[in-house]
Each structure stands twice: as structure tokens, then as C-alpha cells.
Amino acid sequence: MEFDPTLPKWTQIAEVIRTRIKDGTYPPHHLISEVRMEQEFGVARVTIRKVTAALREEGLIVTTPGMGSFVAPRRPQEPNGTA
């Protein structure tokens, strides 16, 4: 991945992962591996931890100590189309 030098790398990586979650590339309960992200994006673990923290705050992933981070189950849609 080629990074935009005007934006923090972690925000750019978070957007990639966010898109993968939303388009179904990463389905609910899919393991979000910090090691794999480090390798794929060529960044330090501290950068990946910022990514997972942001996605966790958004409710897109859940982290279980000792097990890892996983795509959160999808919430049912409200009748008016909002979650």
C-alpha cells in the first residue's frame, strides 16, 4: 500500500480495514490479526494498535483478551434503515 504522506498511516489502514468489514471481505467473527496487518502494511505494532483501538471504538471489532480481535457481529437494521 502506498501511503498518503499528509495523513497518519493508522487512519489510512483503518479505512482499508473498515471498508473490508463493510463490504463483507471480512465477515462477522473474522479474526483481525495484528501480525498479518503489520506484514501486509509494513508498519509497526504500535501503528496497528491505533487501528484496532479506533475500530473497536466504532464498534466494528471486538477484542477478547488472549484470543484476539474479531469483526463484530452485524447489528440488525432498524425499520428506517439505520442501525
Rank of each mutant, 00 (worst) to 15 (best):
M1L: 13
E38F: 08
V35P: 02
A14E: 02
P27T: 03
V51F: 09
P28H: 03
A14H: 04
P5K: 15
E78M: 07
R75K: 14
G24A: 02
I48D: 00
R36Q: 08
R20L: 08
A54Q: 03
F3N: 08
G42N: 15
G24E: 10
V35F: 05
V16Q: 02
T64I: 12
R36Y: 05
T82Y: 14
A83K: 09
P73D: 12
P65S: 09
G68V: 00
E2H: 14
F3D: 10
F41S: 02
E15M: 02
T25I: 07
G68I: 00
P76R: 03
V62K: 08
E57D: 14
E38G: 10
R49Y: 07
T47D: 03
P79E: 03
R56I: 04
V46F: 06
H29R: 13
T64K: 10
A54T: 04
K50W: 05
E78H: 06
E57V: 11
A83R: 13
L60G: 04
P79W: 08
T11C: 01
I32V: 14
V51E: 06
D23G: 01
N80H: 13
L7M: 15
G59C: 09
E2L: 15
F3H: 08
I17P: 11
R75S: 05
M1A: 05
L7P: 10
V62F: 05
T19N: 13
P27H: 07
N80G: 10
L7A: 15
V35E: 10
V43P: 00
I61L: 12
V35D: 11
H29V: 04
V16M: 03
W10E: 06
L55W: 11
P5Y: 11
P5Q: 15
A83I: 14
P65L: 07
Q12K: 08
N80P: 06
P79R: 01
Q39K: 12
R18H: 10
I13A: 02
P28D: 03
K9M: 14
G66K: 12
Q77I: 09
S33Q: 07
P76K: 01
P8F: 03
E38W: 11
L60W: 03
P73Q: 08
E34R: 01
E34K: 00
I61A: 12
A83G: 12
T64H: 09
E34F: 00
T52H: 05
V16A: 11
M67K: 14
K9Y: 08
S33F: 01
P28K: 04
R36M: 01
P8R: 09
